[in-house]
């Protein structure tokens, strides 16, 4: 059963690839210059250029903005509800759980002293990714966090926050001196410098790839399972396809939450390592 399913998925991927000279799955997962409401149609988005640089509004940009608007609306509402009374009511309770979680479970233990300065960045990153991940689970929408450009940008932000935090706390020279562990023999120094500098860049690189891959993989698997129906050209396979897709979808809900947590957690951890180098 397992090997059969595997065979079918692989086959379906190959078939689709050969059919359309690319992949319809990738068309759904990747960015595009239209909002896809098939079978009801498509809404094409404007093409923009700035100094000859393509800054078209794409599907992922639209959903990113949607996430940004939702975030702004939700959290300004939460902030306003605190003005009325310090006792949270209704949805404020729900969001407070996440905010306190980021503060007490992520920032406080990993950064330690002076964690308050980094809270706005960590909270914004956490909820931006969280909203993006969950927006991607809505039918007809797109997951902007499954785009390597978005995750790479976010990872770059983390990288900048980590370096600036480290430099601010330890001084420019102190920070780069502190990168190399104490007690390293002199003859190893050239190697250590290369390794540590490389390490600075691999951390955010891993952040970007991890988020991108996790958010993409689930969607591809769901599409592949659905495509089984068309590959086999039989309705009989649909219960299996839909059932398994549903299972993966449930898993995606978990992954959506988990990846937002992991990105924030690791960013926070790296910030903590940069700020308090003695550890």
């Amino acid at each position: 059963m397992d090997s059969l399913a595997t065979h079918l998925i692989v086959d379906s991927l190959k078939n689709k690839q050969s059919e359309s000279g690319g992949s319809w799955i990738l068309h759904h997962v990747m960015d595009g210059n239209y909002l896809d409401f098939s079978p009801f149609g498509k809404i094409y988005l404007p093409h923009l250029e700035l100094f000859g640089f393509d800054i078209s509004i794409t599907r992922h940009v639209v959903f990113m903005w949607l996430a940004a608007i939702l975030l702004t609306y939700v959290f300004i509402k939460v902030a306003k509800s605190y003005q009325n009374s310090l006792v949270p009511k209704g949805s404020t309770n729900f969001w407070e759980v996440f905010i306190v979680f980021v503060r007490d479970e992520i920032a406080k233990p990993t950064i330690g002293k002076g964690y308050e300065k980094f809270l706005p960045y960590l909270l914004t990153a956490f909820f931006f990714i969280l909203f993006g991940n969950f927006l991607g689970l809505i039918p007809f929408s797109a997951t902007f966090t499954s785009n390597i450009a978005v995750t790479a940008t976010l990872a770059t932000m983390s990288f900048l926050v980590i370096q600036l935090g480290g430099i601010r706390n330890n001084g420019f020279l102190g920070y780069f001196k502190g990168l190399i562990p104490h007690g390293v023999p002199v003859f190893l120094l050239p190697i250590m410098v290369v390794v540590e500098v490389l390490g600075l860049f691999t951390k955010p690189f891993a952040l970007a790839i991890r988020l991108f891959a996790n958010m993409t993989a689930g969607h591809i698997v769901i599409y592949a399972l659905i495509s089984l129906i068309f590959v086999m050209q039989s309705y009989l396979i649909s219960p299996v396809s839909v059932g398994m897709a549903l299972f993966i979808y449930s898993l995606e809900v978990l992954v959506a939450l988990l990846q937002a947590y992991i990105f924030t957690m690791l960013s926070s951890l790296f910030i903590g390592m940069a700020v308090h180098q003695e550890h």
């Binding site: 923009l48 800054i55 939460v78 706005p120 914004t124 978005v150 940008t153």
Partner: peptide
């Protein structure tokens, strides 16, 4: 690149607005 540009812009504005009016 375009998407990276929009992400940077969106994220920074979001960070500013949320940082000031929410967080």
């Amino acid at each position: 690149g375009g998407l990276a540009f929009w992400t940077t812009l969106t994220f920074l504005i979001l960070l500013f607005i949320l940082g000031k009016f929410a967080w």
